[in-house]
Each structure stands twice: as C-alpha cells, then as structure tokens.
Design a protein around this nucleic acid. Sequence first.
DNA 1: GTAGGGTTAG
Length: 465
Amino acid sequence: MRGATAKFSSYHLAVALRREPDPAAALRLFLSPTAATVASSPSSAPPFRYSLRCYDIIVCKLAAARLFPAMESVLAQIPASLRPREPLLCRVISAYGRARLPAAARRAFAHPAFPAPRTARALNTLLHALLACRTPLPDILSECRGSGIPPDACTYNILMRAAVAEPGSVENACLLFDEMRQRGIAPTVVTFGTLVAAFCEAGRLEDAFKVKEVMSLQYNIRPNAHVYASLMKALCEKGKVDDAHRLKEEMVRNSEPLVDSGAYATLARALFRVGRKGEVVGLLEEMKGRGITVGREVYNAMIAGFCENEGDMDAAFAALDDMQKGGCKPDAVSYNTLVGGLCKMGRWRDASELVEDMPRRGCPPDVVTYRRLFDGVCDAGAFDEATKVFDEMVFQGFAPSKDGVRKFVGWIEREGDAALLESMLCQLASVNALEASEWEKAISSVLHDPAEQNIVKLLDNSRLA
DNA sequence: GTAGGGTTAG
C-alpha cells in the first residue's frame, strides 16, 4: 500500500507539473509538491521518490524558459539509479543552443548526470546547437571528429548545413556530400533538400535543378515539398513567378500525397510583392479544393504582404483573425510582422501595446519582436519609451540591433547623460552585444566624468565574460 | 526537440 501511495504521489506531481504553464510555479511545485497536490495533508512532505517522468517534465520546462541555474540544480539532484536518458540530455543541449550559449552546450554534452556512452543522436544535437550559435565550420568539424562517435546521415546533413552557413561555400557542402558517400553513408531526402537549398541560396538555380534530377534518377528519391519550396522561392526571387506557379503544379502532381502549404506561402508572398495580390484568393481556394491545410506560413505571408506591400494594417489584422478562426495559432512571426508594420506606419504606441499583449496571447516576444519595437520607437524619437523597451529586452536576455543601439546612443550623447550611457553599456555587455565602436564613443564622452573608473571596471568585467 | 524549406529580421 505504501508503494502504491508513492507511485500515486509521483504520478500526480507529474500531472500537476505538466498542467502548470508558468515554469517558476512549476519549479515551486516540484520543490514542495505536497503543498499543492494534497491539500489536506500535513505540511511536511511525504518522502516519495520522484519518478524520472517528474524530472523530465521540470527540466524541459526550465530549459524552455531558459531558467538555466534552476535547471542545472535539478539535473544535479537526479539520482544516478534513475538513469536519465539521452532524449532529455538532447533537450538540455538544444536549449543552450537556442540561447546561443555554445560553451554551456558543450558542457551539457558531457553532463555527469547522464550515464555514458553518447550516441550519434546526442552528438548531432550538440553539432546543431553549435551551428545555431554560429560556430565556424572548422570548430564544428573538430568537435565531430574529436568525439569518436561514428557519424550518420543526420550528422552529415548538419555539417553540410554548417558549411552553407559560412560565407557562400556550397563547395564545402559538396565535399562533405562526397565524403559521406565514400564512407558508405546513404544520403537521404534531407541531404538532397539541403543541397538544393544551398544552390538556391547561392543563386545557382541550374545546379539546384540538377540536384533535383540526380536525386530522382540516380538515387530514386522523389523530391518532396521541401525541395519544391526552395526551388519555387528561388524562382520567385528571380521574378519568375509564373515558372514557380508551374513548378507548384508539378509538385502537386508528383509529390507525396502529403503536400504541405509551405510552397504556397512562397507563392502568396511573391504575388503580393509583384502587385498581384488578387490572385492569392484563388490560391487559397485551390488549396482548400485539394485538401491542403492552409498553414501558418500562408497566413504569415499574407500578413507580411498587407503590412509591407499594401501598408494596409486593417487587412493585416483581418488576416490574423482569419488565421485564428481557421484554427491556426499565430506565432512570433505573425506578431513580429504586425509590430513592424505598425512601427512603419508610425503607430509605435499600438505596436507597444501589441507586444505587451503577446504573453497573454500565448506567444511571448522574441528577439525579433523587441528589435523591431526598439528600432521603431527610436525612429519615432520616443526615447523615454525606448529606454523602457531597452530595459525590458535586456532583462529578457535579448540584444538590440546595431542600428537601434546607434540611434539610442546618439540620443543619450545629445542629452549628455553619462550615467545613462554607462548603465546602457553595462546592460549591453550583459547580453554580449558590446562592440568596440560603442566603447570608443563611451570612453570619449565619459572620459571627464567621475564615472570613468566604473567604465574601466566594466571593461574588465566584459573581458571576463 | 537529431537533420532539410516555406512566413519576420539581419
């Protein structure tokens, strides 16, 4: 019976943790579960053992919320006997990747809470995290080779993606493709999708189409929606909207039964750009007729079209409504586009209100949201508001755009507010966004100020970080 | 949430 109670408690904690949307509240629950789960019980916690499930849930929640110190302390508490598994480790690694903390991602890969050995899956997660942190290809390669873990197709796909991310080197991606084949690792549809995207991005459309041919003729792998989407986007960028339209027809004829709406989004966006928005309605009807769900990207493409090409914010918000009515939850891209559109129209107060409302709408602002709002508010010369936005974004761990910083610094200098300048530089350093040029300005303008010594101290701190 | 594209920016 005692055993049953223990299981019962741990099970209910897991349910409660899963249900709690606020990560900080989830952590409190995790630390003193009885206070919330068993209202009638005495305050002292019954010593039931946490299941691995409970650790899984709380670690994932803390990772997603970037509450890393708390996450690490929970990880350190997991009893070795529970043997936490690699998927959880992967969540931790990729959370550090998303937070752009490469050193932390590397440390996590070797985290003592997770029993050795590591498989390619953990290695691939680490490589992908390093890629997200814009680690140079040679460093990613040496991480890979040094691990001693045999690479698989996924590893090579990530390495190829990293190669393409370097200043225009499709060649390195091709070399990796050759190496992959020499090692007897079969390329997948993802490999070819990566190559096609790489050639498209380099503007080498003929080569991209050649890859499409090779994959089907020599490897007997049919191009999927990803491949078509890349090609269609590249065609649209060259102004060949009608060719893209024809390619879409081929996709619908030849591709897997599951065609998603991504390629349609490209087309819709392109039609707005060339002033043919009237054709978008037909596109939507075509999708419905073919049983293709109108996805988030299509709505986002329309929102962007109304904001940027039409300057019609009412239509943009109407598209947002349609999106929600269509059972599609707006994401950060939807809101960021609207925030940008409002700012462009000089309506930064509305933009600011929308941003404040985002958490309530289930979509917390991201780095792009804050950058667009900050830039917009600075452009409008509303520097008191800019100070607020700046504080908030830095508090959330996001760095402003260089452009915004330049305008903001210019204003502070005109005001001659050395103290504000110092605190701003300090905050920039805290999000690793301090550039040499800012230092020079700061030092020249604050040199005769008593705060000078603090600046020097600041410099040392930032070198440490 | 191990990998590729499509919708925002840079």
